[in-house]
Design a protein around this nucleic acid. Structure first.
Lengths: 217, 217
DNA sequence: CGCGTTTTCTTACCCTGTAAGATCCTCAAG
DNA sequence: CTTGAGGATCTTACAGGGTAAGAAAACGCG
């Protein structure tokens, strides 16, 4: 939907607007389609015009990451149990990423240390610390959780991201040799993976719980 | 170290050799430097020559992923406890990835379903299944473990991968506002992250263990 | 030797990010 | 109203990317 503009008319661009258009474009047509000219055309503008709002393409990508990550993170500073805080942060992050599978690669390739993120981390650290984890453990827990969520989303989305200049999706269509890999083949048929995230998240949190009690004795 | 060749002399290329040279180049100069022409020059050959061994660049990248992933996976079909199998698989994969940080992004962007991988998965599934996990759980465990390892390596390497056309490494150098984020700041100073992986891996495995016993009752 | 096959090179095209500068729009000062 | 001034937009241009098409060179076998 390239916006039409009569010659010489202003477009009324905004950094934020550009970022959102970029996210939208990536969502619809994949990361490969996210070029400056393409995005410009989407906004009814020439590619170079974007450079008045954004220093370069990396900054654009960073901005998009920031944009998408900030859509998550509702865990406000409540006094809920640390388990619940972790769970809610992880779930929210995972669901946001699942809603924008095409940009998952970008998020993985850049930590996006925004102040919003740091507040979230601080909040979780505090919960963990006052729940009896030592600081080192608390940091390990938070980092591990982040890595876990990203990794999970990455493998579950299959991800065709930066590569495969073709369309998104389409998935792998190779089938599995039942003779050599009986369990794998069988699993592939069932594969109701809806609960995998919760399962894994619970396992991880339980594991953290055990680590805490273990280190306390 | 571009190999010199007198005009018209053959270069003796091999698909495998090209892949290894590509991995080497990516290791040394980063993913951004891994272009067809560059890689060709490295092998003393024009870019187009590579296309007689490799259909396109995506295939090259896939091959490199396969190459690096196959360097891990020593977990042979022993009758060790499932915990040990998982641990050894995860550790080996993690250490291989840590040895090639520049290609971590590639690995995350593509599952690399090779027969070697599938054997490994089948082996782990079997261990888990005969240890009392139901099939669904076993699959969840394996996928979760993979995602966990990749995610962990990704966040720990910081990753400057595809982006930042400059050199690899250099890291982030921003410091943290101690007023707003006291715990984070303190943690950042200590941060002896050497044991984080083992900590997290143990937590995860413990969690799996609990999930199994829970579902058995 | 000659011929067919395999490997390598040449050229060309279109796409990308982006530096430099021209051009146009808008709006306030005279 | 005219006139700048400053900000927003467009034009042009360049280096580098992936790769399609075909020429040219080297090899192996008869």
């Amino acid at each position: 939907m390239p916006v039409k503009r009569t010659r010489g008319q202003r477009a009324g661009l905004t950094r934020q607007g550009i970022l959102e258009a970029g996210l939208d474009l990536a969502d619809r047509e994949g990361l490969a389609a996210l070029s400056m000219r393409h995005l410009g055309a989407e906004l009814g503008v020439e590619a170079m015009t974007l450079y008045h709002y954004i220093p370069n393409k990396d900054a654009l990508l960073d901005g998009i990451v920031e944009c998408v990550v900030s859509k998550a993170i509702p865990p406000r500073f409540t006094d809920a149990a640390w388990q619940e805080k972790l769970r809610s942060y992880a779930s929210s992050l995972a669901s946001v990423m699942a809603a924008h599978p095409n940009v998952v690669p970008l998020v993985m390739l850049q930590p996006a240390v925004t102040s919003r993120n740091m507040e979230t981390m601080e909040s979780m650290l505090q919960s963990l610390y006052s729940a009896g984890f030592d600081l080192q453990q608390a940091v390990d827990v938070v980092y591990t959780l982040t890595g876990f969520v990203l990794g999970h989303v990455a493998v579950q989305a299959g991800i065709q991201g930066v590569r495969s200049h073709g369309r998104p999706a389409e998935g792998r269509a190779l089938d599995i040799d039942e003779e050599r890999y009986p369990l794998l083949a069988q699993a592939d048929k069932v594969s109701e993976r809806g609960t995998r995230f919760e399962f894994a998240l619970n396992a991880l949190i339980t594991g953290f719980e055990m680590a805490r009690s273990a280190s306390r004795s």
